[in-house]
């Protein structure tokens, strides 16, 4: 049985990884699961300098989901290299660093600082809905996407994954812009912009009023978008959005994702990444699927 997949020239021992921002840099979750079993570890967003993040409340539960507005709180790339990377490099897994910035030059500072480190891939965060500058404002306009990706890509030593926002009219156009600008892979979807109002307190549930919706509630949207983008571009796709089980992950693989990321599920079950991986294996054994890459060719009426 083959579980290995290839994303932009990097071999992952299996297609399962955590989604950026839900897993820290793996240290806390390593008390619950073996990081060596993951196809990759995707870190929280890392900026050129430390970001303080948004005021509380930063999260709230919704029907089969949650809203967050963390705002990419992070200690900056130097601290990341010194502490997080120092920890992560001891594991036999691929390290994918989520890169954030307020401007193109800040993105470039981060990828430049990571050039000579044991990082395997970079994920360009142009889709965070919780920051005023950079983030999603870069990822919702085709010309801007093309500009950011092409300029940052020149400075990258590692393959560049571009993380797409679902908060657009046509995600395929954004995907094409990223592809033509030189992206090596796509990850999708980031969270959907949402809002919750606490009617008893007569106030917004989040301090920033709006936040990113994630969890099982968004899975059908994510699957649909992965399917559409699969047919619009040739780049490998890391699919995510509400994956809670192995069968959820297989849905994304069938829709056209090469790999999958687990986000909100890790809050519900700290071992979720491994549970999903085990679930994929159980499914493959039960339905006699020899290669995890076969799922992408399985849809009968494609």
């Amino acid at each position: 049985m083959n579980l290995a997949v290839n994303v932009a020239g990097i071999t992952l021992k299996n297609p399962v990884m955590p989604a950026s921002g839900t897993f820290g840099s793996g240290k806390e979750f390593s008390e619950f699961l073996d990081l060596n079993r993951l196809g990759a570890v995707v870190t929280k967003g890392v900026a050129s300098v430390s970001w303080s993040g948004n005021p509380p409340p930063r999260c709230t539960e919704t029907a089969s989901g949650m809203l967050n507005s963390v705002g990419l709180q992070n200690p900056g790339v130097e601290s990341f290299i010194r502490n997080d990377l120092e920890f992560l490099k001891n594991f036999n897994t691929n390290i994918i660093v989520n890169v954030c910035g307020h401007s193109i030059s800040e993105y470039i500072d981060v990828v430049t600082a990571l050039r000579d480190t044991p990082v395997h891939m970079l994920e360009l965060n142009i889709s965070c809905p919780n920051v005023a500058e950079g983030g999603m404002s870069f990822g919702t306009d085709c010309h801007m996407v093309e500009k950011v990706v092409s300029r940052v890509k020149k400075h990258c030593r590692q393959p560049l994954i571009v993380k797409l926002s679902p908060n657009v009219t046509d995600i395929c156009e954004i995907a094409k812009a990223a592809e033509s600008a030189g992206a090596d892979a796509l990850s999708m979807i980031n969270t959907l912009l949402g809002m919750k109002i606490d009617v008893k307190r007569r106030n917004f549930s989040l301090a920033k009023k709006v936040g990113g919706l994630s969890g099982a509630a968004i899975k059908p949207i994510a699957v649909r978008m992965v399917y559409q983008v699969r047919r619009a571009v040739k780049l490998p796709i890391i699919g995510m959005g509400g994956i809670m089980t192995g069968e959820d992950a297989i849905e994304f693989l069938m829709a056209g994702a090469t790999a999958v990321a687990i986000g909100t599920a890790s809050f519900h079950t700290p071992t979720a990444c491994i549970d999903v991986l085990d679930g994929i294996e159980v499914f493959m054994r039960r339905y006699n699927v020899p290669d995890v890459n076969d799922f992408g060719r399985m849809l009968e009426s494609n």
Binding site: G21, T22, F23, G24, K27, E28, F29, E31, F32, K44, G53, P55, P56, R58, C59, N68, V70, Q73, S266, F267, P270
Partner: peptide, 10 residues
């Protein structure tokens, strides 16, 4: 998350 990873509880 409750274990220190997600930074949702500042």
């Amino acid at each position: 998350c409750g274990i220190g990873a997600c930074l949702c509880c500042p």
